[in-house]
Simulated scan of single mutants.
Amino acid sequence: MKNLLQFALILLLATTAGYAQKLKVKEGSFKSLKDIKEYTLVFDYAGVEIPKYDSEEEFLEDKMAKREEKEAGAGEVFKKSWFADRENVYEPKFIESFNKRFEDGEVKVTKETTASHTMVIKTTLMYAGYNVGVMRQNAKIEALISIYENSAPDKILFSGMYTKVEGQGAMGFDYNSGYRISEGYAKLAKEFAKDLKKKGLK
Results as ranks from 00 to 15, higher is better:
13 L>K: 10
13 L>D: 11
17 A>E: 08
18 G>D: 06
19 Y>C: 15
22 K>W: 01
22 K>R: 14
23 L>N: 05
27 E>S: 13
30 F>T: 04
30 F>I: 04
31 K>G: 07
33 L>Y: 05
34 K>W: 03
34 K>R: 14
36 I>W: 02
36 I>Y: 01
36 I>F: 06
38 E>M: 13
39 Y>D: 02
41 L>F: 08
43 F>N: 07
44 D>G: 09
46 A>W: 00
48 V>N: 02
50 I>P: 05
53 Y>D: 08
56 E>C: 10
58 E>K: 11
59 F>I: 05
62 D>E: 09
65 A>T: 10
67 R>P: 03
68 E>L: 06
68 E>T: 11
72 A>R: 11
73 G>S: 07
73 G>T: 08
75 G>S: 07
76 E>L: 11
77 V>M: 05
78 F>N: 06
81 S>Y: 06
81 S>W: 05
84 A>P: 01
86 R>H: 13
87 E>W: 01
94 F>W: 03
94 F>G: 07
97 S>A: 15
101 R>L: 08
106 E>W: 00
108 K>L: 12
109 V>F: 02
109 V>H: 03
109 V>G: 04
110 T>D: 07
114 T>N: 13
114 T>L: 12
115 A>V: 09
121 I>L: 14
122 K>G: 09
123 T>A: 13
126 M>R: 13
128 A>E: 14
128 A>H: 04
134 V>P: 08
135 M>F: 14
